[in-house]
Every structure is written in structure tokens, then in C-alpha cells.
């Protein structure tokens, strides 16, 4: 659930993002677009991990499906963007419904492994189905609307879609359904006892998470003008999971914060050393060991200590 502080953070974040084009330089625009795409991807995963407490290790499957579908509709079928993108998101949601229907029958470890298996299946199909996906080389060179060649317009396009998506996710997290999700996370047995259809609610969460991952994937396909099987590989699922964990999985804005930190660190550290993975591994290790609630959890506990000291001084 989004607290007041988090809501303010979100608003400020989007105001800050809206100011980026004013800098008049290219690179901040590029970075902001990448951050928004991966931030949305991480937030979509958090619907599963943070809200209903289902650990999916195959979320990249929907990221890839959204991207491939959008690329295919745009390029091979020549659909206009206002048809192709909703269609791609719809297709991703249908895939999430089918895959989710099977996955929500299992819980915990088995759920994690089944999602992993499905995502590897999606990867294998993307790798083999050359006629549609371009195979191992990927779907290269998608037909994008003209305005996307302009970095500033592409930025605003991404900004609008991500802002609306995050707004919808915010509404979800503050709705009755969002509260039901959290009840399931905290105690599925009790939720069941109180008359919640746990399996159906988890399926709904799965489809919502998949659809938003599909939006992120579609945006990425426009951004890099292609889609590649690597986007469905298990390491991609691992990366987005790290983002969620780093930011803080039980908070609304945590994932977007985690995505920003990981992405910015990766971009800059890998310019100085080829050993970025060991840095990421160490960060992850420290978070797991010492700050399992992520950055948001750290901020919260620092905040609590500060306000306690404030009270003592007063």
C-alpha cells in the first residue's frame, strides 16, 4: 500500500522526470527513458511479490511477450501504434492468464520454479520460432511511428504511458482489491477463511503483473527498435527481482527506486571496471543479509530513529 510519503515521492519523481527535457541534453533523456521502462517492469513484478506474496522467477516471460507482440504487430502486420500496443498488452494478459492459471495452483517454491520453467519455455520458443520472433538474432528493426525518432517526443510518449501505468497501479494498491492482496500475502489461510477466493485473486494479480510487464516490454521494443530472446532468459527475471528487493518489496515505490539505483550504478560502474557483476553481487548480498526491507526499509528505520531523537530533544 502506498503511504502518504510514498505518494509524495512518486509525485516529486514524476515532476523531476518532467523537468529532464529542460536540461536540453540528450543523455539524461535516454537514461530517464531506460529508467522508466525498467522501473515499470519492476513495479509490475511487485504486484506479485509485494502484494500477494508470490515469488515469480519467470516474470521476464511477459516482458518479452509484450515486446515481441508489439514488434510483430507494428512491423509484420503494419498496425498503427494505437492498435498494436493495446493488442500486444492484451495478448500478454491472455498469455499471463493461461500461464497463471497453471501457476497459481502451486505456492512458494513450486510456484517460483513453475514460473521459471514457463519463462524458459517462452525463451526457447522465442529462440526457435524464427519466422515470428527472428530466432536467436532477435526481432531487429521494428517499424516505429515517425515521432519516435525524436528523442524528446519519445521521452514524452514513455513518460505518459509509464505515468498512467503507475497511476493505475497506485489506484490498485489503494483499492479494496489491493487490500485483499495484502491480506493474502500476510496470511493466505486466514484470507481463505474470511471468504476470499485466494487462488482467483492470485490469478488476477498474476494477469495484472503480466500485463504491466508487457507494457514495459512493448516500450523497450520501441526504444531499442527490436526484441531479443535474452529478454526472456532467467537472468533477466533475476535482474528485475534484484531491483524489487533492493528498493523494498513491501512498499509501493520501492521497486522504482531499486530500478533507478541498479540501473544508474550499472551504467556508471561498468564504465570504470569490467567487474560490475561482482559489485552487483556484493550489493545484493549486503541487502539480503542486512537490509531485507530494501532501501525504503532503510529510509524508514533511519526516519524512525531521527523522529525519536527529535522527540527526546524537544
Amino acid at each position: 500500500m502506498a503511504t502518504r510519503g510514498q505518494t509524495i515521492f512518486l509525485i516529486l519523481l514524476f515532476v523531476a522526470l518532467a523537468l529532464v527535457p529542460l536540461a536540453g541534453e540528450r543523455y539524461p533523456l535516454e537514461l530517464a527513458v531506460q529508467l522508466m521502462i525498467f522501473g515499470l517492469f519492476a513495479m509490475s513484478l511487485n504486484v506479485l511479490i509485494g502484494h500477494v506474496g508470490s515469488i515469480s522467477f519467470g516474470h521476464a516471460a511477459f516482458f518479452a511477450i509484450g515486446g515481441y507482440a508489439c514488434a510483430y504487430f507494428q512491423t509484420r502486420l503494419g498496425w498503427p501504434i494505437f492498435v498494436s500496443m493495446p493488442a500486444a498488452i492484451g495478448l500478454t494478459a491472455v498469455c499471463a492468464l493461461i500461464i497463471g492459471y497453471f501457476c497459481v495452483r502451486l505456492t512458494e517454491l513450486y510456484f517460483a520454479i513453475l514460473t521459471l520453467a514457463f519463462s524458459m519455455l517462452v525463451w526457447a520458443v522465442a529462440f526457435k520460432w524464427t519466422e515470428v520472433t527472428g530466432g536467436g538474432d532477435g526481432f531487429v528493426g521494428i517499424t516505429a511511428p515517425d515521432f519516435m525518432s525524436n528523442p524528446v517526443l519519445f521521452f514524452w510518449f514513455t513518460f505518459a504511458i509509464v505515468a498512467v501505468s503507475v497511476g493505475l497501479l497506485w489506484l490498485l494498491s489503494n483499492s479494496t482489491m489491493g487490500k485483499t492482496f495484502i491480506a493474502i500475502r500476510e496470511n493466505p489461510t486466514r484470507a481463505d477463511f474470511l471468504g476470499v477466493n485466494v487462488r482467483r485473486m492470485r490469478l488476477i494479480a498474476f494477469v495484472i503483473a503480466g500485463a504491466f510487464a508487457g507494457i514495459a516490454g512493448a516500450l523497450l521494443s520501441f526504444y531499442v527498435r527490436g526484441m531479443f530472446p535474452e529478454s526472456a532468459f532467467w537472468t533477466q527475471s533475476g535482474q528485475v527481482m534484484i531491483m524489487v528487493l533492493l528498493g523494498g518489496m513491501h512498499s509501493f515505490v520501492g521497486p522504482i527506486l531499486g530500478a533507478v539505483v541498479i540501473y544508474v550504478l550499472e551504467t556508471f560502474i561498468s564504465q570504470y571496471t569490467q567487474y560490475w557483476p561482482i559489485v552487483l553481487g556484493t550489493i545484493l548480498l549486503l541487502i539480503v543479509m542486512f537490509a531485507p526491507d530494501g532501501l525504503i526499509g532503510m529510509f524508514r528505520s533511519i526516519g524512525r530513529r531521527m523522529s525519536m531523537r527529535g522527540r527526546r530533544n524537544a
Binding site: 522467477f57 512458494e108 518489496m249 557483476p277 545484493l284 539480503v288 531485507p292
Partner: peptide
Amino acid sequence: LLSRLYDKEHLLQLLFTFALVLIIKDAVK
């Protein structure tokens, strides 16, 4: 390290091993 995580969530244990993958691969390199 790992022994401190036994009573934690599955996700943390899983990510711990994921961190090991990243660290070991680079250490090997």
C-alpha cells in the same frame, strides 16, 4: 552468511544464492 537466513523468506535465500552466482563468476574471472 547463509546460516543467518534460514528463518527468513524463501525469496531472500534464493536471492542470496543469486548473489553468490554473480560473485563467484567474477571471482573465477
